[in-house]
Design a protein around this nucleic acid. Structure first.
Length: 864
RNA sequence: GGGCGCGUAGCUCAGUUGGCUAGAGCGCUGCCCUUACAAGGCAGAUGUCGGGGGUUCGAGUCCCUCCGCGCCCACCA
């Protein structure tokens, strides 16, 4: 037993993080079988973002659950991954190194990046391989920072099972899975209207869309009626798309326009004849009830275009600017091609917003703008990390089928156990609202390549529908570098040669395979069978529609089962004004590293663990302070218990003398603690870490404030050896139990204290068992009222002293305790302890009515 | 527009199937260096449980309704 004189929290994080690693405390034992294992499909954090407290929060929740399961005897498979395969990384690299990728450039050996660019300075174009090198460099550095934080936070991860989503193994799994889906026609390519980010020049998926309130304006515009028919008036926020107009649409039931359906009008400025169509999606209440269909302004346009079989007049290029058009040619017929061309010429090369300004001038001049634009704010779709509104352009993409599995995926959602249960609704809403298959191709560079080549025909055209598939054992491949069987590099891009697919996969297309990647699927069947399907998917609620949904979908398609049995969903961290923490909002209080240094890991974990499953958490320094105080209290009370009871009993559970806790108040304590253990355990089994902590903490403070105060002197031996042994047994057993109950939450301080009396880690100790330990040691059948009543009497005596403005050490000549008979009798069982703790010479018990009251006659100090 | 969650002390939150005078911590006020702990301890004050209606012997808890906040989905001409 090595109990320090002056215990301290300083240095515990460094000390124990290092020792746990050195001793392999959290190493996964892969000899264990599936039923002995508890496997966790840990979220791989996106390493491109800034570290913030939200990370600390949800990862703490996972770790707390992992530690509980480990102590319960499960062999915990708890790996970590880094999601470094992403457009997000490219964004950061562009910013940090001042470069932009230009795949046409050749590789430069020993390239030095210019660094963050100054305002007005253009980014330096670099080759694709150079760009990827920079991405790799960036992710390595970023991952070190993440590792440091996770390690300091005390995550009990087995770091020998770490993966990155850009790593070779992930690429292989991702490409293998893609090819399997392709073989089964569950992945397909198609040229179609695509939601497009014009800055990053890539497609994005439905799940990555985000609405932002943006200023806009209604423009009231006249379409000319033909053959004597009246003009039709529309309201639009996007007049610049008039050249892309292919039809007008009204609701079939709208009497104002019913007669016009099937007719034709002429577009303003460009003189194009467009049909008037009817469709239920047209809302008579919106604007004039007539909508302009353009190819394409929004997702509705795509629906109308498809369902009404309209023409295509695409005017937007992949960079978001208006393309040149040959007015008068097929598909661009105009009643006055020369005028159309003259007007349109001034808009070419502009992005939507500037083109809009330009066309308003033109419309005003032509008299087709009937009113001044009426400013409004309206929601506009953005890529969640983008800066410009999304456009819709038509090009070739790869898709994974999801829509046809809607019902089956809903069923999977019902099969999964959600913590909390109501999070299932978000999943169901999302699945019900799927409006297209999952677009997995991204026109980017730092990602898992689509592992395909395409033959090039005699006339130099790639045959997109006839891909050349690599051998499975050659995976992963990068088709921009590798050459397919039967071809040579010289044939790349040549007639009768081949081209590589230029695209990479959406990051979710790889991270949705995290169970397969980390579980050894494909390469290590033995491991996979020991861990899959996983027990737990922990994650935050903001990525239910992406990561959770995609993982369920992939598992359903590949294995026809759920990837895991439980999903534990965390909330978000908000600032005190309930706004999401975000650097751009300037409310990111401090880096987690600084917070860790200031309050300590246990304090952060305490704060994080206060969030219920699914519940949001408010950043609150106060809670951090309390957490630190709790850790300090654990240290101090442990010191007292161990020092005061040394040589009485051994610390570890099972070594306590079961017969030793004989005193009624000690037995009452054990009985009460037994209830706490049962409640904490039940809460944990239901994945409710917050409740477990709350139960333990509540007990702990009353243990310190009341019980320890009551029995302190007796434990020192003031009432003799046998009463002291009883107190010592109860104190030690309680401490041992409390340390283990706290261990998942406060791993550092509990490990420190545990180490004073044990060579083993508290994190490999067994979770407390109420009946085997506490009830067997004397708690069985004990009257808990003894502790409660004795505490009440002690508090009343303290109150007397406080009221008299006297020290707690002040002696009491005589104290009369009045109260209802049962409570009195219970307190009387602890008379000796009360007298010791209150420094009472004579205790008098008087039965009466009502709650316990005490009248104390204090030993007043002599005057002068 | 549809849905989910939330609304309890100045603040952050417990209050599990309805049951004694509604709790904790922080903050506030006062007292105390008490040999585990002064970056501490002890004690005290503090509430129309968002509003209104209903069921019940009894409602913070169940039902209806309204208000407010957060989020998700849809719409976004």
């Amino acid at each position: 037993m090595r109990v320090p004189e002056k215990p301290s929290l300083d240095g515990l994080v460094e000390k124990w993080s290092a020792l746990w690693t050195e001793r392999g405390t959290f190493r996964f034992d892969r000899t264990k079988t599936r039923d002995q294992v508890f496997s966790i499909d840990t979220p791989p954090p996106t390493v491109s973002g800034d570290l913030h407290l939200g990370h600390c929060c949800s990862y703490t929740h996972t770790d707390v659950l992992a530690r509980f399961q480990r102590m319960r005897g499960r062999e915990v498979f708890y790996p970590m991954g880094w999601d470094d395969n992403a457009l997000n990384v490219e964004r950061r690299v562009q910013l940090n190194y001042g470069v932009i990728c230009d795949p046409t450039l050749p590789y430069v050996e020993g390239f030095e990046a210019p660094g963050p660019r100054k305002s007005g300075q253009a980014p330096m174009p670099v080759s694709r391989p150079n760009f990827i090198e920079l991405c790799a460099k960036y992710t390595v550095e970023a991952e070190e920072a993440y590792f440091k934080l996770w390690s300091d936070l005390g995550l009990s991860v087995d770091w020998t099972h770490t993966y990155t989503t850009i790593g070779e193994r992930a690429q292989k799994v991702s490409q293998t899975s893609f090819l399997e889906l392709m073989e089964r026609d569950l992945a397909y390519t198609s040229e179609a209207p695509t939601v497009w980010d014009v800055d990053y020049r890539t497609a994005v998926a439905q799940a990555e869309l985000q609405d932002r309130e943006m200023p806009g304006a209604y423009h009231r515009i006249k379409f000319t009626g033909l053959d004597g028919a009246e003009d039709l008036i529309i309201d639009t926020t996007r007049p610049e798309l008039i050249p892309a107009c292919v039809a007008l649409v009204v609701h079939p039931e709208d009497d104002r326009y019913r007669a016009r359906v099937g007719g034709t009008v002429r577009t303003p400025l460009f003189g194009v004849r467009v049909p008037i169509k009817a469709h239920e999606l047209a809302d008579p209440e919106k604007g004039t009830g007539v909508a302009m269909i353009c190819t394409f302004g929004d997702i509705n346009d795509v629906t109308w275009w498809r369902e009404l079989s309209l023409e295509t007049r695409g005017i937007l290029g992949e960079d978001g600017t208006l393309l040149p058009i040959s007015w008068g040619e097929p598909n661009w017929e105009s009643d006055d091609p020369a005028a159309a061309a003259e007007r349109y010429r001034t808009m070419v090369g502009l992005r939507s917003e500037r083109a809009r300004g330009r066309i308003v001038t033109l419309l005003r001049a032509s008299g087709d703008l009937l009113d001044e634009p009426k400013p409004i704010t309206h929601p506009v779709k953005f890529w969640e990390n983008g800066q410009s509104p999304l456009e819709i352009v038509t090009n070739r993409q790869w898709f994974i089928r999801t829509v046809q599995f809607r019902e089956e995926l809903l069923e999977r959602g019902r099969e999964l156990t959600w913590h909390p249960d109501y999070m299932r609704v978000r999943y169901e809403d999302w699945v019900k609202g799927l409006n297209g298959d999952w677009n997995i191709s991204r026109q980017r560079y730092f990602g898992v390549p689509i592992p395909l080549w395409y033959p090039v025909s005699e006339d130099g055209e790639p045959c997109w529908d006839d891909p050349i598939i690599p051998d499975r054992d050659a995976l992963p491949v990068d088709p921009s570098v590798g050459v397919p069987h039967g071809f040579t590099e010289e044939q790349r891009g040549k007639p009768n040669g081949f081209v590589g697919d230029p695209n990479v996969m959406d990051t979710w297309a790889t991270s949705s395979l995290s169970p397969q990647i980390v579980g050894g699927w494909g390469d290590d069947r033995d491991l996979y069978e020991r861990v899959a399907p996983f027990d737990l998917r922990p994650q935050a609620n903001d990525i239910i529609r992406t990561w959770l949904f995609y993982t369920v979908a992939r598992s359903h398609m590949a294995d026809n089962r759920l990837p895991w049995t439980h999903a534990a969903i965390s909330g978000m961290v908000n600032d005190p004004d309930r706004k999401k923490l975000s650097k751009s909002k300037g409310n990111n209080p401090d880096s987690p590293t600084n917070i860790l240094a200031e309050y300590g890991s246990d304090a952060i974990r305490y704060w994080a663990s206060g969030a219920r499953p699914g519940g949001d958490l408010i950043f609150d320094r106060n809670q951090l302070k309390i957490g630190r105080r709790l850790a300090m209290k654990v240290l101090n009370v442990s010191r007292f218990v161990l020092a005061a009871t040394e040589d009485s009993v051994a610390l570890a559970a099972g070594h306590a003398n079961p017969a030793a806790a004989t005193h009624p108040i000690d037995r009452a304590l054990l009985a009460r603690l037994a209830v706490v253990v049962d409640q904490s355990t039940a809460a944990f089994e239901d994945f409710d870490w917050a409740r477990s902590l709350e139960r333990t903490e509540g007990f702990f403070w009353s243990f310190c404030d009341d019980y320890v105060e009551l029995v302190k002197n007796r434990a020192y031996g003031s009432l003799g050896a046998e009463p002291a042994a009883s107190a010592a047994a109860a104190l030690r057993l309680s401490l041992s139990t409390l340390l283990r109950l706290f261990a998942p939450f406060l791993p550092y301080v509990t490990e420190e204290v545990w180490s004073w009396g044990s060579e083993e880690s508290v994190h490999r100790a067994s979770w407390p068992d109420a009946s085997a330990e506490l009830l067997a040691a004397g708690g069985a059948g004990a009257d808990q009222a003894v502790l409660e009543s004795a505490s009440t009497v002690l508090a009343a005596i303290r109150r007397e002293k406080t009221n008299a403005k006297m020290s707690m050490r002040t002696a009491v000549k005589r104290a009369e305790v009045r109260g209802e008979a049962d409570a009195l009798a219970a307190a009387q069982e602890a008379a000796g302890d009360i007298a010791e703790a209150g420094v009472v010479a004579e205790l008098v018990w008087t039965a009466g009515d009502g709650p316990i009251t005490v009248t104390a006659e204090l030993e007043l100090p002599e005057a002068g």
